[in-house]
């Protein structure tokens, strides 16, 4: 009472909203600057790599023979020949891997979402995580130990595909699993109510609903395995000419071509390395863009 009389123009208690102190404001501003800076720093290597690869590789991929010839009969110092043998190898190894990994991956994802209960399901889910962390060189060594050392198989492109299966599986499983979990339960329940057995419900209702997302996941999985280098180093030899047979003999692939040209001291070697790097990035980008286009046009309606 008395205070109000002593200073009638002042409020009796301090105002409920106080201006933010300078120290807090400063902290807030500097944090904003720092996180924005972190994002910019993260963008630097991506832009740098892409620009560098495009500038140094453009000359090669626009050269006349690049897409239609192999390195057969080309001397190390010649700016000649192309990489179609390596493109073929890269694609066929990935496709063979996909033929094995995609069905198993989708089935395993169906198991985890639709059937898996209890201990085995938990172990499987755990092992999918572990598998996604297995280094590619270890996958390659395992295939080498099992198929080449113990079973006596010859090193070939197919062995590479087998190693890639181990790397592709967890990506397919995780992506498919995520999509299957997005399928609303009412769809399943409607099917059961009509007396449709569970497996038919999954095949006819659940999978088609999740199809576009699954395809996206598979494309991303392809993008991941296509650039793998460690398995080709261990499991197949480099060939300068085209080899159509993935089950026999040496076969080139883009990473393997790049690696073997590294020991070429001639400038033409660098020319081919950067050209192959650009070609590889273009192929990966096609899969990436394809994946994002598919996912944009057909998302699950919630």
């Amino acid at each position: 009472m008395s205070t109000a009389l002593e200073a009638p123009d002042q409020p009796a208690s301090s105002p409920p909203f106080q201006p933010i102190s300078t120290a807090r404001r400063l902290k807030n501003t500097s944090a904003t600057v720092l996180v924005a800076l972190a994002f910019l720093i993260a963008c630097v290597p991506l832009v740098w790599i892409l620009v560098e690869v495009v500038i140094r590789g453009a000359g090669a991929i626009f050269s006349a023979d690049w897409w239609g010839r192999s390195q057969s009969g080309v001397n190390p110092e010649e700016y000649a020949g192309g990489v179609y043998h390596a493109i073929y190898g890269t694609i066929i190894q990935a496709l063979l891997c996909g033929v094995i990994a995609v069905p198993i991956g989708i089935l395993a994802a169906i198991y985890l979402v639709e059937y898996g209960r209890g201990r085995l399901a938990k172990t499987t889910s755990f092992m999918v995580d572990i598998l996604s962390g297995v280094p590619s060189i270890v996958a390659a060594l395992f295939i080498f130990a099992l198929f080449v050392s113990i079973l006596g198989a010859e090193q070939s492109a197919f062995m590479v595909s087998l190693a890639l299966v181990l790397l592709m599986l967890p990506v397919v499983i995780r992506n498919t699993e995520e999509m299957l979990r997005l399928v609303p339960d009412r769809l399943r329940e409607s099917a059961y109510a009509l007396g449709i057995p569970k497996w038919k419900t999954i095949l006819r209702i659940v999978l088609p609903t999740a199809l576009s997302g699954t395809v996206t996941g598979v494309m991303l999985a392809f993008a991941r395995v296509i650039g793998e280098t460690a398995p080709v180093l261990v499991l197949v030899g480099y060939a300068r000419a085209i080899n159509y047979d993935p089950f026999e003999g040496n076969m080139a692939s883009l990473p393997l071509l790049m690696f073997s040209e590294f020991s070429n001291p001639e400038p033409a070697g660098q020319f081919r390395i950067w050209g192959a790097a650009l070609t590889l990035i273009l192929i990966v980008m096609i899969f990436q863009l394809g994946a994002s286009v598919i996912s944009r046009f057909s998302a699950i309606q919630k």
């Binding site: 085995l120 399901a121 092992m127 598998l131 130990a145 181990l166 599986l169 967890p170």
Partner: peptide
């Protein structure tokens, strides 16, 4: 489907084993 799940578990065990 269960077999595919088991295959994933088995592959990790096989990697270690071989």
């Amino acid at each position: 489907t269960t077999g595919s799940g088991v295959l994933v578990v088995a592959s990790i065990a096989l990697i270690g084993l071989f």
